[in-house]
């Protein structure tokens, strides 16, 4: 009697498990739905429409009537201003990445040391610019780096480091440098938190074992910390690069793209064409610029993504050997 019972029970258990699993899926789908609808409506739809607009001569109002095929793209390829702005975006991104990545790591390593007092206070302090409005930072920094009666020049003059005020934002190289420094300062805190998260995921046992083996701080850093951080460093690199390529509010408020467009980035280029307040807006042309730059960012992200994967695989191989 018992055998048939057992044979009957097995499928019921399976059925129950499958029902439960399905019910779990329903719940999951239910919770995802609002977000998914918003994502499609507010992210996917505008992206798709940007592709559509890029093939039209369109000012942003009225019906899409003037289909001009690839004309916007052809014009864009010959537009020296677009390529200059493209270069400025790259310059900013490289500058910010080179400054932020190593400095934030050093700071994170310091704050990860248990000996340092007031760690939480300093972490908060470094994180403050992250939560401050970029536009406000831009306006304040424009005053700090002003030519006359401005804080930086006044300080340098007070300490007799310079005789005449430096025209920080009137010189193309200095203006870009100031923008990179301010942008790096703003983004520094969040990268430091990323590094800290990576550092805190490393087991204390490893360090202890290294200590017993006689490893000092630098050899521990070189042979243990940095290799373990390799996969997360690729993720941080990706986030820093993508952030650096999309700088708008800081440029708008700090330099407004000046002097003579030397700090104008692609985001500002797109904005100026799409919503020109003195001239006819060119939404189609701005969209084609956005698409082209978007494709570049996408390819770059794939490249870094490949690095992330490779870094992860290398670590696995090392772990096995």
């Amino acid at each position: 009697m018992s055998e048939p019972l057992l044979s009957n029970q097995k499928p019921r258990v399976k059925l129950n498990t499958s029902k439960r699993r399905h019910r779990r899926y329903y719940w999951a789908y239910l919770f995802i739905t609002p977000q998914f609808i918003l994502f499609v409506g507010l992210t996917i739809f505008p992206i798709v429409m940007s592709y559509v607009y890029s093939f039209y001569q369109w000012s942003g109002i009225g019906p899409l009537e003037n289909f001009i095929k690839w004309e916007n793209y052809k014009e864009l390829f010959h537009d020296t201003k677009f390529w200059h702005d493209f270069l400025h975006s790259l310059e900013y991104m490289v500058g910010q990445t080179v400054i932020v990545m190593p400095l934030a790591l050093i700071m994170a390593i310091l704050f990860n040391e248990s000996k340092i007092k007031g760690k939480t206070f300093y972490r908060t302090l470094y994180f403050l610019p992250v939560v401050t409005s970029t536009a406000i930072i831009g306006i304040v920094m424009a005053n700090i780096f002003g030519n006359k009666d401005a804080l930086v020049n006044n300080l340098l003059q007070t300490f007799h480091i310079i005789k005449h005020p430096i025209h920080w934002l009137d010189n193309p190289t200095l203006a870009m440098t100031v923008m990179i420094i301010v942008g790096s300062w703003k983004f520094f805190g969040i990268v430091m938190i990323y590094w800290l998260a990576g550092l805190q995921s490393i087991s204390a046992d490893i360090y202890e074992a290294a200590k017993i083996d006689g490893a000092n701080f630098f050899s521990t850093l070189w042979y243990i910390t940095l290799p373990i951080l390799k996969p997360i460093s690729a993720v941080i690199l990706l986030l820093t690069v993508v952030n650096g390529l999309h700088v708008f509010d800081l440029v708008k408020t700090l330099t407004d793209g000046g002097p003579y467009f030397s700090t104008e980035t692609i985001d500002l280029f797109i904005y100026n064409y799409a919503f020109a307040s003195d001239g006819i807006p060119r939404m189609g042309y701005a969209s084609s610029a956005g698409i082209l730059f978007g494709i570049f960012v996408f390819l770059l992200s794939i490249g870094i993504g490949w690095l992330i994967k490779k870094a992860g695989q290398d670590e696995k191989v090392k772990g096995k050997s």
């Binding site: 424009a142 002003g146 030519n147 006359k148 009666d149 005020p165 025209h167 934002l169 009137d170 000046g258 002097p259």
Partner: peptide, 8 residues
């Protein structure tokens, strides 16, 4: 003669 902050 031109104030240095003019272009900013």
């Amino acid at each position: 003669v031109l104030h240095p902050n003019s272009m900013q």
